[in-house]
Nucleic acid binder design. Structure first.
Length: 323
DNA sequence: AACCGTCACAACCGCATGCGA
DNA sequence: CTCGCATGCGGTTGTGACGGT
């Protein structure tokens, strides 16, 4: 199902992402955010191009992704939006929380498209069948009598023919989807769908010893970050990051042992943090939903001396690295 | 058991777009 | 206005899984 790992000319890895690569990316992005995809793999210790990292994160690793089969409501929404917007997959994905454009696109090409085509064929066959039935009934009803004289019999019933109706393959009124309402009330109900554990796929190879055992080729995640949980009032509370928290703020630069990644792209970096500004940057916690992140990822057990992250010690100057 | 065709989907590729210098 | 860079988007490909023969 996945591609065989390979390398391109520049030595960057291509193909299937390994669990270790996923770990690095998840750990880095959940901690520092995606401040610059081009630079990110270098800092995260990934031999990947930024594009590949972004794709992997956006389509597979990022939180709140809904995995598993599409619900009938989602499929109906896809069909409806496709009819409305065309193949603007990202716009369609925006209507389906937790689904990616790639996922929707794949689902369309592998399942819905064929189903719609079959639906069209079925409808056409039905029409043809009805037409044929009418003909055959006409033939049947035109029974030659003993004398070879054709006598037209009066029809006992009339089959209603709706063939003039719409048989659009992506019409929400088509038979296959006729039982599904097409109003936006579905959107609300879809939000109540159970989201799978976003990092469930990591479960098989993430355990307590993972971070200890993992040799991260130049990058590790030694410095534990302070986790600030958000209470029901929306205020933040410092908490033990080993605890599971549903919604919390990561404050990656509150630890005395680490500084934030900035490189030369401070503006982009700030943009990545939404409302952060130069003035409040160092005091505002970086708010990120890490409810999906296993505690092992938040507090990796790697010796701090191995910590390898860019440090921005000269605000307007060059960043450098410490290890 | 081996082979083959189909399916599903992760990932790649190339182009488009936005933005700052 | 132009250029270069970063990111987003949609089409396409590659490959393991799976079922049928």
């Amino acid at each position: 199902m996945v591609r065989t790992p390979s390398c391109d000319k520049s030595g960057l890895r291509k193909g299937t992402w390994t669990p270790e690569e996923d770990m690095k990316l998840v750990a880095y992005v959940t901690r520092y955010g995606c401040w610059n995809w081009r630079q990110l793999p270098k800092f995260a210790g990934l031999a990947r191009c930024g594009k590949s990292c972004r794709l992997r994160w956006m389509n597979y690793l990022r939180p709140n992704l809904k995995r598993g089969n599409f619900t009938p409501q989602e499929e109906e929404c896809i069909i409806r939006m496709l009819k409305k917007l065309g193949n603007r997959w990202s716009a369609i994905a925006a209507e389906l929380p937790g689904r990616t454009d790639n996922e929707i696109k794949n689902h369309w090409h592998t399942t819905l498209k064929k189903r719609s085509q079959q639906n069209t064929v079925t409808n056409e066959e039905a029409r043809a069948s009805k037409s044929k039935n009418k003909e055959s009934r006409a033939v049947r009803d035109s029974v030659p009598n003993k004398n070879g004289v054709t006598v037209s019999l009066p029809a006992t019933s009339q089959i209603s023919d709706n063939s003039s109706g719409s048989f659009s393959p992506i019409s929400s009124s088509s038979s296959e989807f006729s039982s599904i309402t097409s109003d936006h009330s579905n959107s609300a109900s879809m939000e109540n769908l159970v989201l799978e554990d976003d990092f469930g796929f990591l479960g098989s190879y993430v355990n307590e010893s993972f971070w200890k055992e993992l040799n991260l080729d130049g990058v590790s995640y030694g410095a534990p970050c302070e986790v600030v949980s958000r209470d029901t009032n929306g205020s933040f509370q410092s908490t033990d990051s080993t605890q599971n928290v549903d919604s919390c703020a990561l404050s990656p630069h509150q630890s005395s042992s680490e500084s934030m990644v900035v490189d030369n792209d401070f503006g982009t970096f700030l943009d990545a943090y939404g409302e952060a500004t130069v003035d409040n940057f160092w005091s505002q916690p970086y708010v990120v939903d890490v409810s999906h992140v296993p505690s092992e990822l938040l507090v990796p057990s790697v010796a701090e001396s191995e910590y390898f992250a860019p440090v921005y010690d000269d605000f307007w100057g060059q960043s450098h690295f410490v290890q």
